[in-house]
């Protein structure tokens, strides 16, 4: 059943993204920002956590899941004091961010852009 919910919820978020791309003039970075911020805000309101419980990776792999991790880190940190409250978001997503930066840098050093056919 986990797999079913992961598929439906994850796929559903992609459909929302596709509709935004097709029907609005929003540029890609804007859509990314909207998704991440929406995920963080929903988490702050306590609405995203149940979705994660239900769909697991179906809710954490799409970009709102990134916002969820950020917000969750901050909210968990808030229990340990002010400093942890503002640093918790990055701490919680540090692995992914570091991987994206370091591996991205290596990839960019190795590969060159190709013309499209």
């Amino acid at each position: 059943m986990d797999y079913f919910y992961a598929f439906v919820i994850g796929g559903g978020m992609c459909v929302i993204g596709q509709i935004l791309i097709d029907t609005t003039k929003l540029t890609t970075p804007r859509i990314l920002v909207i998704f991440v911020v929406a995920g963080a805000v929903l988490t702050g309101l306590g609405l995203y956590e149940p979705l994660v419980k239900l769909a697991k990776n179906g809710a954490t792999v799409p970009l709102p899941g990134f916002g969820y991790s950020l917000a969750k880190g901050s909210m968990d940190g808030a229990k340990d004091g002010f400093l942890a409250a503002i640093s918790g978001g990055i701490k919680n997503t540090a692995a992914g961010l570091t991987a994206a930066v370091v591996f991205g840098y290596i990839i960019a050093l190795v590969f060159s852009p190709k013309s499209k056919r």
Binding site: I21, D22, T28, P113, K114, S115, K116
Partner: peptide, 20 residues
């Protein structure tokens, strides 16, 4: 040139965006 114009005016070549 497709590649010079694309990166100046639009998105990077390897970006997986959808063209309307």
């Amino acid at each position: 040139h497709y590649c010079t114009a694309e990166r100046q005016f639009r998105m990077p070549l390897e970006h997986g965006n959808h063209r309307p």
